[in-house]
Design a protein around this nucleic acid. Structure first.
Length: 551
RNA sequence: GCGCCCGUAGCUCAGCCGGAUAGAGCGUCGGACUUCGAAUCCGCAGGCCGGGGGUUCGAAUCCCUCCGGGCGCGCCA
């Protein structure tokens, strides 16, 4: 039984009987200080303000009503300005172990999201070059958020939007064409605004391998087209490989080009005109986004008749909502933050609340080595790729670091530090807790100590303060999942896992397991440890980080 | 100039839909391995939560303002 949920139910019922409602702002949380009990609730203070009543006397009333029919609580205390502090009976906390044993990899799962249909779009890098470290951060956040929200009962679909239309693709084709001709011994010049990266030489090499010098005999447009298509395909293949090695999954790969070809973009523009939200001026087509809280109007179709990216972005979001999503989450690099108001305006133009689009802005990753900046210039083509980083520091460490900061603060990523196996790199702290438990179990097997799965009576021996600390921490797990999902914040889960690992490590130095004084105590502690390992591995799985049995 | 984000311990960062005496790791210093993994644990020190005003019973959290840093403000992509 979930403690927070239990109290919430008890309090809601009590309030109903008093003719009051549970206020949305009220919260039930573990208090900062242990002496304030297991969980504290501020509901009396919130209601006291609304009802202009003394919070403490309101709390007294609530307390006595709750206690009238109560079996799980040991005591309720009223403290400070009107906090209700709840302390459960010790045995109540033992039930979390049975809960974990029974639910296994589903422990922590809930229907909190009630099947709300959510789409999360992330990475969506143009297929003009390999992913760099910044894409990796967005990838980790998007992928992990998807896992967490699914676990919390949302119906989540993940997607990569492929910008495979427009001028950039033509530039990519031309850039590759130059490299191809270079390989064929022709002294072609790479314009300054072409893609400079060396990876295009590799791409051209593959094309040259396949076609030899034959492209030189074609008319140039056809040759550039072949270069363009081959380059997109090869680069995309690399991106997919990088993502899969980074444990990142996208269920849907959505082509921008398809929106143009099946005239979704045209239909969208027609709809905007129809609603009076678009107008022609100076030969261009404009979106009247100032009518919807943007600070200036935006061009949809330029006077040269070509479309802006914004036009297809609106069409894309129309398509998303047409597919029936209730909530659309876009994960963007923070340098696109100026884009948010116009996109929200577009969403409103589509007849949706601006809240049905949530944009997570991911700040830059500042790549360092021993405290010194690593140069990363896309223009010069000397950027550090995601592949370079994960092959140096590993997927687990990289993901955990990305998922240990809130997305909208810049991240210092020191390669040497992330390789270090200390608390500079907390992923090992969590993984070590798991490996330690696993190691203990293989030791137990060596010593011929087996589980007695029917030893419920022995659990009551788990009554030290370290036991209680660990039990309460495990019981928090489901609440951490729902709050991470609600706040779109995977990093809360990382912090939780660090805390849980901490309680385990502390326990480990205080209490012996396999050499405890009697068989029942050995059993009880093994069962406790098995539960901890389960919660850690469930949590790490949601972060896309492995839970190794030895390291 | 306008807009968004950030400013919390020496360093890196949590906490921010208001709640009790502001937290963690690293680093410094001092302790704990003949015993289940020391990639661990325990302890000491370290703070006008950038400054100032306001709202409130209560502000790191909300509002205003100033300072400092980042980013954005195109018929670019």
């Amino acid at each position: 039984m979930n403690a927070r949920q239990y109290l919430q139910d008890r309090l809601s019922t009590t309030l109903t009987n008093m003719g009051l409602n549970w206020p949305e702002k009220a919260s039930i949380e573990p208090p900062r200080e242990k002496k304030f009990g297991d969980l504290a609730c501020n509901v009396a203070m919130i209601l006291g303000r609304e009802a202009r009543q003394n919070p403490r006397s309101l709390a007294e009333t609530i307390k006595s009503l709750v206690l009238e029919s109560e079996t799980e609580l040991e005591k309720i205390e009223i403290a400070g300005p009107g906090f209700l502090n709840f302390t459960f009976r010790k045995n109540f906390w033992l039930s979390v172990i049975r809960d974990i044993e029974q639910k296994k990899e589903s422990f922590g799962k809930s229907d909190y999201g009630r099947g709300t249909r959510v789409q999360i779009e992330y990475v969506s890098a143009n297929p003009t070059g390999p992913l760099h470290i910044g894409h990796g951060r967005g990838a980790a956040i998007g992928d992990s958020l998807a896992r967490i929200m699914r676990f919390a009962g949302y119906d989540v679909s993940t997607e990569y939007y492929l910008n495979d239309a427009g001028k950039q693709m033509d530039v990519l084709g031309k850039s590759t064409w130059v490299r191809y001709r270079n390989l064929s011994g022709i002294d072609a010049v790479l314009d300054a605004d072409y893609y400079q990266g060396d990876y295009l030489t590799e791409v051209a090499g593959v094309i040259h391998e396949e076609y030899g010098d034959r492209l030189l005999a074609m008319n140039e447009d056809d040759a550039v087209f072949i270069c363009r298509e081959k380059a997109i395909a090869l680069i995309l293949e690399g991106i997919k490989k990088d993502l899969s090695d980074f444990m990142v999954e996208h269920q849907v790969w959505f082509s921008e080009n398809s929106l143009i070809e099946n005239s979704t973009v045209d239909q969208t523009l027609a709809m905007l005109l129809d609603k009076g939200l678009a107008y022609e001026q100076d030969g261009a087509l404009w979106f009247n986004s100032t009518a919807l809280d943007d600070d200036k109007d935006r061009v949809l179709r330029k006077s040269d008749r070509t479309l802006t990216y914004f036009a297809s972005d609106i069409a894309y979001h129309k398509n998303k909502f047409d597919r029936g999503f209730d909530l659309v989450v876009d994960i963007w690099g923070a340098d696109h933050h100026g884009y948010v108001p116009r996109m929200k305006a577009a969403v409103q133009a589509l007849g949706r609340s601006p809240h049905s689009l949530q944009v997570i802005l991911v700040q830059l990753v500042n790549l360092l080595r021993e405290g010194r900046q690593v140069a990363m210039s896309t223009r010069a083509g000397e950027f550090v790729t995601l592949r370079d980083v994960i092959s140096e520091v590993g997927t687990d460490a990289c993901r955990f670091i990305f998922l240990s900061r809130k997305s909208d603060s810049p991240l210092d990523f020191d390669l040497e530090m992330v390789k270090r196996k200390t608390m500079d790199n907390p992923v090992y702290y969590v993984q070590y807790a798991h490996a330690r438990i696993c190691s203990l179990f293989s030791k137990a097997a060596e010593k011929g100590i087996s589980f007695d799965n029917d030893s419920a009576f022995a659990l009551e021996l788990l009554n030290t303060s370290e036991d209680m600390e660990i039990l309460k921490k495990m019981a928090e797990f489901p609440d951490v999942i729902t709050s991470s999902a609600r706040n779109l914040s995977p990093h809360h889960l990382s912090y939780y896992l660090l805390e849980l690992a901490g309680t385990l490590h502390r326990y480990y130095t205080f209490h012996q397991v396999l050499t405890a004084k009697n068989k029942n105590l050995i059993q009880a502690r093994m069962i406790l440890f098995r539960a901890v390992a389960r919660v850690i591995s469930n949590g790490l799985d949601l972060l896309g980080v492995s839970a190794p049995e030895r390291m």
